[in-house]
Design a protein around this nucleic acid. Structure first.
Lengths: 206, 206
DNA sequence: CTTGACGGCTAATCGCAATTAGCCTATAAT
DNA sequence: ATTATAGGCTAATTGCGATTAGCCGTCAAG
């Protein structure tokens, strides 16, 4: 990885741990293995480093748009996949979604940075909301809608069902972000949540 | 309110909006209506102001310990109350919990500040977790356990049921914190969530 | 009535962290 | 071979923001 890119990488790590204001350009430089003034050969200012991170993120998010969402293709296709899914497979999928969010290094650091910086910048708050509320709910809602249509799931309110699926995942994720030591505990609860979700909304009742 | 206390109040407002590092003591002073150096007649340093806020919070949290939790008394008593509760009353209670968290001015500012500052300070992360995960889940879990015992609710996993009750509330709260304009939308969804929760776990099935 | 604490003000100071200046080496293109 | 450029370094410079110094009016207690 070239220096220019390593700066972004180390800066993201530091920003996600301490927040923009508490990171000095010298800290970033040190991790990259250069001196602070050398950073300015690559970026005009500290703010420019931050901006570059945001821009890189936007690119990634566009590229990986569907990647978080199970198949990575369009939801119609996903629903086709789900038609013949077993309870165990459904649980596996929920877990994978969670573990992707939790462990993907870039995603994780970015999420923490957004959490810290979201109130500084209206734009960041919007990015956060989109990533962790609107997009998951709308994508999964669409998916669940199709699954309801095909009789795999049963409910008279897809939106609330989606909320019931996603909200615990989100909550457990925030727990793990704050205290990685609780990961195992959260994974157990996640498993129980997914089983219960399946019991409530799955074929057995529909 | 005396100056000393107004400083804390204004500082909390600013910290919750912009984060500790982005607030200058001059900003706080200006809001209070004095000049920056005069602050030092009341607090030794900017950090001391922050610490005083945390301490004040700890006091409030102890005092209001049960206040968030419906009756404010012990859960055994609360379960008694719930025994004869109607669906509408249950929904009302869930909404009130949500609205208290959302609108109580002190709680709200404090929550936002914790959100921003939690990664700076391990202690704050712990406070956050306790306030928004452990305490609600354990208190409500106890309550729901009693309600299950008395046949008001039905489930074979109280912990997951509690998660299903609370996680959507938490998620919707984070949405409103970030974008107050979405409050109405969130309240509608909250209402639908509570109704659905009642349908799933309420007497009708038990 | 006078004194001392309280709380405010203006004008420094102090320190730190971002940024700039200016220099040097290596390498790649002409 | 020459030169331009990229990218690194050390040594300033700058600017801002926290904090201190030192002054002043008020007011309550003696």
């Amino acid at each position: 990885m070239d220096t220019k890119h390593r700066i972004l990488d180390e800066a993201l790590t530091l920003f996600s741990e301490k927040g923009y204001a508490n990171v000095f350009v010298g800290d970033i430089a040190e991790r990259v293995g250069i001196k602070a003034p050398s950073l300015y050969k690559h970026y005009k200012s500290k703010q420019a480093i931050f901006d570059a991170i945001i821009e890189e993120m936007n690119e990634r998010f566009v590229k990986e748009a569907g990647a978080l969402n199970i198949s990575g293709t369009d939801p119609t296709m996903d629903a086709g996949i789900y038609k013949g899914i077993s309870e165990e497979q459904m649980i596996e999928l929920g877990k994978n979604l969670f573990l992707y969010y939790l462990h993907d290094d870039y995603t994780k650091r970015f999420r923490k940075m957004l959490t810290i910086e979201q109130f500084h910048d209206k734009e960041l708050a919007e990015v956060y909301m989109k990533q962790y509320y609107d997009d998951p709910l709308s994508y999964q809602g669409m998916l669940f809608g199709l699954m309801v249509a095909s009789g795999v799931l049963s409910t008279d309110n897809v939106q609330v069902m989606t909320l019931h699926f996603y909200a615990p995942i989100y909550l457990l994720l925030t727990v793990c972000d704050r205290d990685p030591a609780r990961e195992e505990e959260c994974l157990k609860l996640l498993d129980a949540h997914l089983r219960q979700f399946d019991k409530i909304y799955g074929r057995s009742i529909g």
